[in-house]
Write a protein that binds this DNA or RNA. Sequence first.
DNA 1: CACATCCTTACGGGAAACCGTAAAGAGCCA
DNA 2: TGGCTCTTTACGGTTTCCCGTAAGGATGTG
Lengths: 222, 222
Amino acid sequence: MFNKVLVAEDFDSISITVEQALSELSVSEIHHAKYCDDALLKIKKALLDAAPYDLLISDLSFKTDHRENQLTSGDELIAAVKKVQPAIKTVVFSIEDKSFRIKSLFNNLGINAFVAKGRNSIPELKKAIQGVFDNDSKILSKELAHTLRDKSLIEIETYDILLLKSLSRGLILDDIALDFKNTGVFPNGSSSIEKRINKLKIFFKANNNVHLIAIAKDLGLV
Amino acid sequence: MFNKVLVAEDFDSISITVEQALSELSVSEIHHAKYCDDALLKIKKALLDAAPYDLLISDLSFKTDHRENQLTSGDELIAAVKKVQPAIKTVVFSIEDKSFRIKSLFNNLGINAFVAKGRNSIPELKKAIQGVFDNDSKILSKELAHTLRDKSLIEIETYDILLLKSLSRGLILDDIALDFKNTGVFPNGSSSIEKRINKLKIFFKANNNVHLIAIAKDLGLV
DNA sequence: CACATCCTTACGGGAAACCGTAAAGAGCCA
DNA sequence: TGGCTCTTTACGGTTTCCCGTAAGGATGTG
């Protein structure tokens, strides 16, 4: 089993349980950081001491508070950690369940496993850690495996996301057209934008723009 | 200390820690439910057995999964529980930090304490439980105490939520007015509804209905 | 009772969304 | 080059939203 593991998790109510699980897996050195910045410091320090961590278990979202932090999310933390120690194994333990988010964690950040926080997540987390240690393959909690294969959302492109984001910011059609013209996004005629929004409304079976944004928010698209 | 306590929390990673904390407070009977429906059943069963719970510790948001549930949130659970056992003490342990949400928990649901999940929440939770047992006063984690005193906040009531939900379902003003008339919700004039939506837009600094729903979704109001 | 105040509802005009149609432009191919 | 298709854009007409004003109704108070 891994010798030295770092847990990056802000909630004490969760980290206590995770550390417990790690000790049950016979991990000898278990450390914990409540802030991303602290986690990165620990990783760097361990490297300098020639006693690097074998594994990082990280949450994705961290509460903001009075403290000023450079790194504010697990994404940023993992990216920063990989820069100083590319070979480290990483497991993400998060509430996130949007397929395109998880997909990008594997593809862009090269994480080794993703476990969704849920009703039976600690056994899954243990299994994932064991799996990463044993064979290094990409591990994903069961309930999520199918969502990644869901092709229905593939058609939605960055342009559509941009459009939905603009709407959800309260912009009206003409504002969006102007904004797109200024930022070089194409097509940018207000009529084209209108048509594209209409396609989205048909696709998502939305009655109107309000309904559309409600649906997009539910799907985590924006 | 309380004798019999029920914990309603879906994440195993959190409930384990909470139960641990309860046993450290010398609570003799500690039960746990992962679904709101199960929690209500346990409360009812305990009442029938003439061994009711003294305290309910509940999360607010519960993940939805394959299971069909009547109650889908801590709000609904607490409301249902209070109907069958009005005198039960309730502590909410949640990530929620929007003042108007917490305010309504105290005012509309009559909870006894609110503890925000965070970096040092377990000690706070313990203190809150002790406080509720000792003197029954309204308990609030420190960092949140000041936000509740903010008088500028309008009360977001169930009526507003109903309104926002209707909008997010794609209904237009006249539909909502008709729907409210049919279901006996008051006020139900389309003009009044329009005015109320306008108040919400001012409060949440929304440019239009689309923007308003985007904000409401972000805040988890609907 | 008169008066003030608050809430609900009605109405009207202008802005934006909604929806169909058609013109202008780009790319492809014989 | 001319014909074809697809995309982008423009343009009206209708509906809904948006916002101000004001009438009607309930309640409270001196």
